[in-house]
Design a protein around this nucleic acid. Structure first.
Length: 239
DNA sequence: AATCCCCGCAACCGCCTCCGG
DNA sequence: TCCGGAGGCGGTTGCGGGGAT
């Protein structure tokens, strides 16, 4: 037993959309608005999956889409927002009018990553690439195999599939997952100044105390008030 | 002129979250 | 409170166009 498919795959078109399909979708949405995507294809006379219709509309047919190259200003805003939000493309797209999450994701992967690397910045962490990081990133293979024996004392990989043949197992990498409040030893200039600050400010209200989300009650152990200036402590939810 | 290769983008897939019954 | 349906999201794939050889 499993999840029921979102559509009958045997009777749906796949691949590139034709002009006629686009026209059908546009005229249907203009007449009826965005509604139930699952029933839309049938109602619009399209042999498409509802998800496919939604994607086509959002990423390509929507009238408010901005077409054309990204501006330098948009580039910088994306970089700043990515540093703050990570791969939350839909949130980033929400701050760039006329741009879609898919478009930004593609643009990130094809242009901005390269741009940051050329600046010597790690596109994942947004920190300068150190020699060690560079060596790590450029390593031809990184062994991800789980050691077959419990003996990890020598910090070597014993997997046959590992071509490293006992190469160092990157023992310096701490892969423990933890959640903690960000901490600055001294006030720092916000990296989200200028455009990004206005963008972030725009998504600030209503604010949610992160301590509360972690289970504290009534402000117990909550330090948000005293650290109000630290933007990253307070997460905001878009409406 | 033909072929190959790389890059960019549109679209798909599968998982997650939300919401209503 | 649980469950299932629907929408949403991020990662990945594959095709087409354009440049290089």
């Amino acid at each position: 037993m499993g999840r029921s498919p979102c559509c009958d795959k045997a009777h749906t078109n796949k691949g590139a959309w034709t002009k006629e399909e686009d026209q059908r979708l546009v005229s249907y949405i203009q007449a009826h608005g965005e509604g139930c995507w699952r029933s839309l294809p049938k109602a619009a006379g399209l042999m498409r999956c509802g998800k496919s219709c939604r994607l086509r509309w959002i990423n390509y047919l929507r009238p408010d889409l901005k077409r054309g190259n990204f501006t330098e200003k948009e580039d910088e805003l994306i970089i700043k927002l990515h540093g703050f939000l990570g791969n939350k493309w839909s949130l980033i797209a929400g701050r760039l009018p006329g741009r879609t999450d898919n478009e930004i994701k593609n643009y990130w992967n094809t242009h901005i990553k390269r741009k940051l690397l050329s600046r010597g910045i790690d596109p994942h962490t947004h920190h300068p690439i150190t020699a060690a990081t560079a060596a790590f990133l450029t390593a031809p293979e990184i062994c991800s195999a789980v050691p077959e024996t419990a003996d990890t004392s020598d910090n070597k990989c014993h997997s046959d599939s590992c071509s490293g043949g006992g190469s160092p197992n990157y023992v310096d990498l701490n892969l423990d997952l933890s959640i903690s409040l960000p901490y600055y030893s001294s006030p720092q200039p916000s990296p989200y100044s200028d455009d990004a600050s206005t963008a972030v400010a725009a998504v600030r209200a209503p604010e949610i105390c992160f301590c509360y989300r972690l289970g504290f009650r009534g402000g117990d152990a909550c330090v948000c008030e005293s650290l109000k200036e630290h933007l990253v402590l307070r997460l905001a939810i878009r409406n």
